[in-house]
Design a protein around this nucleic acid. Structure first.
Length: 281
DNA sequence: CGTGCTGTTGCTAG
DNA sequence: ACTAGCAACAGCAC
């Protein structure tokens, strides 16, 4: 489900639901996802703590408490959904977080966030707040596309010595985070750049166009609530609608909305790439 | 029934 | 130094 826009939308919903609330109880239903879950440590350090803020870095969610931050990644199929029950409702429910208002001890207003992940490519981890900058999963991350000023100039600099394809390049999280297969395809279409072009063959002008199209594509997707390609839902269980705006992704064999030629699909570094031969050069 | 895809990321081998 | 390929897994379309 998640590329940057989906995680951003989920973050906003989760933030609304739990920020300022007290994490009363955490229940785990298995010991590992992609990596082992430090269950004892998480229970010890987080139960009874208040959530000061909910943040996103790359595709990681951060629940910041006084000393620690819970780090949650959704992998390919993970989700966090508000439910009415503290009982697991689905087969692939791996954790349930119970929140209460910090001010009251009543059980009336408990909130239950269920972590669900069929494929278990996600992760749940804990990191001290003052160690986040050196946190192993964060140290190698590239820039946040929506925060980075002059993203295009940055891409131009970074691409100069790279012979890999531009699509693989912008999907590389050590260069720029959050751009997965869907948004890489869409941003390249909007920029009129063929996904198979060698990164270092792009002119400065093309890089600047690509940089701004990456930002616009991500922003548009966030506005639409993300892309519910298969089963993405936000924290409230609502789907996103950006798939209605997809120009090329998943449209192989269909007509390009812009020129009417047939959309093609090709494997680039093992990932299916959708593009219009006519509009993208 | 297989078979071959799928939104991620980090490690490995070349 | 860079890059492609793979592994971890469940579900779904064909």
């Amino acid at each position: 489900m998640p590329e940057l826009p989906e995680v951003e939308c989920l973050k906003r919903g989760v933030k609304k639901a739990i920020q300022g609330k007290k994490l009363k109880e955490i229940r785990f239903f298995r010991e590992d996802l992609r990596y082992p879950i430090p269950i004892k440590k998480i229970k010890r350090e987080c139960q009874g703590e208040s959530i000061n803020s909910v943040k996103r870095r790359s595709k990681y969610l951060l629940w910041e408490m006084d000393r620690f931050s819970l780090v949650i990644h959704l992998g390919m199929t993970g989700n966090l959904i508000k439910m009415n029950s503290r009982q697991p409702a689905l087969h692939h429910t791996h954790a349930i977080f119970t929140f209460i208002d910090s001010s009251s001890d009543s059980t009336e207003k408990e909130i239950y966030l269920h972590y669900i992940d069929p494929r278990r490519f996600g992760m749940i981890d804990l990191c001290k707040n003052d160690e986040l900058s050196g946190y192993s999963f964060f140290v190698k991350l590239g820039v946040e596309p929506l925060q980075k000023r002059n993203l295009g100039e940055y891409l131009f600099m970074q691409t100069r010595r790279s012979s890999r394809s531009i699509k693989t390049f912008i999907m590389d999280a050590s260069i720029v985070v959050g751009v997965g297969n869907i948004y890489a395809c869409e941003a390249l279409f909007r920029a009129g750049i063929h996904p198979g072009r060698e990164a270092n063959s792009l002119s400065q002008e093309e890089c600047i166009i690509l940089g701004s199209q990456i930002k616009d594509t991500l922003k548009d997707a966030i506005k639409a609530g993300g892309t519910s390609f298969r089963d993405y839902r936000d924290a409230e269980g609502n789907p996103g609608y950006f798939e209605l705006s997809l120009s090329v992704y998943g449209r192989v064999g269909e007509k390009c909305y812009s020129c009417g030629k047939i959309i093609k699909a090709n494997k680039i570094s093992g990932r299916t790439s959708f593009y219009c031969d006519n509009c993208q050069n």
